[in-house]
């Protein structure tokens, strides 16, 4: 399976994402600069964390105007897997690929620590290697991770099981403790916590690795004849 890691000016988790795929997962991965116009040849796209365009105007607002976003929207519409982490999640909401928005943390602090997440939906291409209700330890590092959407959107997220991860102890004031959501089609996941920073015990935990092995497992089942 071949992954693309999108890179914008100010992305800073792109190298961690690349490392998780290449060295921990053992799959193919390439960086794709924001000015590129095609994602042909890739099977999955990872939108990494950081501070694209210095968070100017709003987090993700400038990145959403990049050339590569047109290709990303087509890629997502084709049902292929797209994962946005942290600033990547913010970019996906700005792009309208996921509903809602990420607001300033309720306590106005930049939160940087490992948190416990509940796997609310393990029936997705990103979470099939987790047990239902499993608790996992994943680091967060954000100042604007307070998920918000209107009541109607929340009702539809709940009705369609689109809330994939929740915080066990809400660090940022997010609605319904939401840490990560998936689109209705089930191929675009956005989450504030960083699974790529928890891909090896040597850095304090490997609970994030199963998210990536889930993607690969699903892809192999669909594309590889044994």
């Amino acid at each position: 399976m071949k992954f693309a890691v999108l890179v914008f000016p100010g992305s800073n988790c792109d190298v961690d994402m690349y490392h998780a795929i290449k060295d921990e997962l053992g799959e193919e991965v390439e960086y794709v600069w924001h000015s590129e116009t095609s994602l042909d040849g890739f099977d999955g796209v990872l939108v990494p964390g950081g501070f694209s365009y210095g968070d100017y105007l709003r987090c993700g607002a400038m990145a959403n105007q990049s050339n590569i976003m047109t290709a990303l929207k087509e890629f997502a519409a084709a049902g292929k897997p797209v994962l946005g982490v942290c600033n990547g999640f913010q970019i996906l909401t700005e792009a309208g690929l996921l509903p809602g928005a990420l607001l300033r943390n309720k306590n106005l602090k930049f939160m940087c620590r490992t948190v416990t997440l509940n796997v609310e939906n393990n029936n997705t291409l990103f979470t099939n290697q987790y047990a239902a209700g499993e608790q996992i330890e994943i680091p967060i590092a954000h100042g604007e991770g307070n998920y918000y959407c209107d009541e109607e959107t929340l009702a539809s997220l709940q009705a369609n099981n689109q809330i994939v991860f929740t915080y066990d102890n809400n660090p940022n004031g997010s609605l319904q403790n939401i840490a990560g959501i998936i689109n209705e089609q089930g191929n675009v996941l956005g989450m504030m916590p960083h699974p790529e920073r928890a891909a090896n015990e040597i850095v304090g935990g490997a609970d994030g690795l199963k998210l990536f092995t889930s993607i690969v497992k699903q892809w192999r089942e669909q594309h590889v004849n044994n």
Partner: peptide, 8 residues
Amino acid sequence: KVLTNTVI
């Protein structure tokens, strides 16, 4: 398109 996010 850009200057505001009409969700919020």
